[in-house]
Simulated assay, not measured.
Amino acid sequence: MSNCAACPDAIDDNNFIKCNRCSKKFHLLCINIKKGELEKAPRDYESNWLCPICLNKQPKSDNSRKPVRPTTPTGMADMTFINTRRKLHSRTDSDPSIHLSSASDAGIHNIREIIRDELRGVMKDFMADYMTDFKNTIKSQFSEIMSEINEFKNSLEFISEGFDSMKKELSAANAKIALINKENETLRSDIYSLKLRLNTFDQLSRSSNLEIQCVPERKAENLIIMVQELGKSINFNLNEKDISYCSRTAKLKSDSPRPRSILVKLNSPRTRDCFLAAAIEFNKKNHENKLNTGHIGILSTKVTPIYVTENLSPENKHLHAAARKVAKEKNYKFVWIRGGRVYLRKTETSEAIFVRNEEVLEKLNKL
């Protein structure tokens, strides 16, 4: 048992024909030949019959056995087919072989058309299913993407609202900080002004005070008599009524070897100024023997100098010490106090510099 060369079905009856050249068998129905037509054909037709494949392979002198023109594919729509009229040499319309050959060609053409239609249908169904699945997949993925975009948009809006709120709060905080800074600057200015005024009042309250430094301490010492003896040495007599208060002050540094200073409060600023002027004049006249412990009756192996100055406020004392340090570094020859104020002078002929605050000393250091 063999199969048909045109279709995959087996040949199990006598309704077939065999090719004389390739020996392949074909169902009569597959090559579009009716059994009645085969019976009417000449006796040698069946023994000389050639299948369409072998028939197309043999040389042709004309196009009488040219297959039926197939349906023009889309890609060949612009091609031109030249149709030539068949030339009938030895056969006539009544020749059964002509009809059988034409029938075979028509059967192959029909098979091709069926296969093409089936392929078109399969491709169409496949593309339809594929496009449907593709569209559904794209739609699903697009929905997921849009959902994520919406979530991202909502998150971005939430963050944006939070950022705007923070921005407003920051702006308000900056405005508040600016106001606080402005108030702080005002308060600093007021505090500095109050500090200056307080220092001025403190210094004015000391306008009648004298400070006598470097006087050795002794047990059972009488400070009033000691001050009076100092006045006699500089030719300025003081009685007890001129002295309102007299006492030793506390040391700023407990380990300092210098004796405690003597604070003297006189009855008026004028008396204080006159006593200071007398001490300055005495030191000028006695340049080689300035005020010392010998002038107040303290006799010892070592004579130490005595200094008479104004009683300065703590702020002015600190400023006076800083001025002396700068004078030493910058070779300023004179540092003195007048009326609670600190002055500097580099030489005898140079202009005096009023040390109002430490900023003046900083400027001098930069010169």
Rank of each mutant, 00 (worst) to 15 (best):
G107N: 12
P70G: 13
K60Q: 11
N48R: 03
I115W: 11
I114S: 13
P67R: 01
I138F: 13
S102G: 12
I33A: 08
K66F: 03
E144D: 02
V122P: 06
K135I: 11
H99R: 15
P96K: 10
K57M: 01
S94T: 08
N83G: 14
L119I: 12
D117R: 12
C51Y: 02
T84K: 12
N136F: 12
S94D: 14
T84Y: 07
R69A: 02
M79Y: 11
E39G: 11
M123H: 15
K135G: 10
K57R: 02
W49E: 02
M123N: 15
M146Y: 01
M146K: 06
C54D: 01
R69M: 02
F152S: 06
F152V: 03
E144L: 04
Q141D: 13
L38R: 05
K153L: 00
N136I: 12
K139P: 06
L38W: 06
K87Y: 00
Y130E: 04
Y130D: 04
N63L: 04
R69Q: 05
D125H: 09
N83C: 06
V68C: 09
S97W: 15
R43H: 14
N48P: 00
E151V: 02
I82L: 05
I111C: 07
F81L: 07
L55V: 05
E46L: 12
A128Y: 15
A103H: 09
D133M: 09
E37S: 10
N150G: 00
